[in-house]
């Protein structure tokens, strides 16, 4: 069970009956039907459909726990808070109370659920990817280096925060198309993404490329033989 520290993590607790509706109205994936025990990933986007942050929403029953990124939390909250208006939503930042890591390369039979035991919460967010969150002081085992994790990401074309997932790209270019719901209705940036999909033109696309034959400036994650790059498509 290889694991790697998820250093750039933030965790906020969202309470109130309007939380899911608020997140659904501001992000690319459908989350309104999320139920207790489920976890789902979605993207907050600007009106220009650029990524603000890629977040993981845990439905804890009485509240939502939203994993996001420490480097983007301020921007995310600046985006969300003015839009709460009169809705029943309150947000608490509990980032510093927890530690975070990613478990990768292990087959998850079921994706989209989480389990919690002995202070450790494990959200299965992909077929070979889980996010682990535990209270401060917890020691994760079998930790690997970021380089090893990057190599695995390159082999499996997995985009990551700070590499492919950045504010200069839209979710389709960054390899997050699976988290852009095709029919959920309006959200910020939806018109632009819907137009790209309907016209089959998304401009750029995440690709696994040969390192030596790719211009270094377009590589987002460097690997030895292969790398990840976001390149303009021929369409």
């Amino acid at each position: 069970m290889p694991r790697v520290a998820y250093k750039d993590s933030a965790l906020t607790v969202w309470r109130g009956k309007d939380c899911l509706r608020l997140i659904d109205g501001l992000t690319t994936n459908h989350v309104l039907d999320l139920e207790k025990g489920q976890v789902r990933q979605t993207v907050f986007t600007t009106t220009a459909a650029k990524i603000i942050d890629f977040v993981t929403v845990f439905h804890m029953g009485d509240f939502l726990a939203v994993h996001s990124h420490a480097s983007k939390l301020s921007k995310l909250l600046d985006h969300v808070i003015p839009r709460i208006l009169g809705q029943d939503v309150s947000i608490t930042d509990v980032s510093s109370k927890n530690v975070y890591c990613i478990e990768y390369g292990v087959v998850n039979e079921i994706v989209g659920t989480f389990s919690a035991s002995n202070g450790l919460t494990r959200g299965d967010i992909g077929s070979e990817l889980s996010i682990l969150i535990a209270a401060l002081g917890f020691e994760f085992e079998e930790m690997r280096s970021e380089e090893e994790f990057s190599q695995w990401r390159v082999e499996n074309t997995i985009p990551w925060n700070g590499y492919e997932i950045s504010s200069v790209h839209h979710p389709l270019a960054a390899g997050l198309a699976a988290f852009v719901h095709p029919a959920k209705g309006c959200y910020i940036g939806q018109e632009i993404l819907a137009r790209m999909v309907s016209r089959g033109r998304q401009g750029k696309k995440l690709m696994r490329v040969e390192t030596m034959s790719t211009e270094p400036g377009s590589i987002t994650t460097h690997g030895e033989a292969y790398s990840l790059a976001i390149l303009r498509t021929t369409q």
Binding site: D93, V94, L136
Partner: peptide, 18 residues
């Protein structure tokens, strides 16, 4: 996961528009 339910995590300061 420590959700701050048993402790006193301060809420994020919400900007209440004028």
């Amino acid at each position: 996961m420590d959700c701050g339910t048993c402790e006193t995590s301060g809420p994020v300061q919400l900007m209440t528009p004028e």
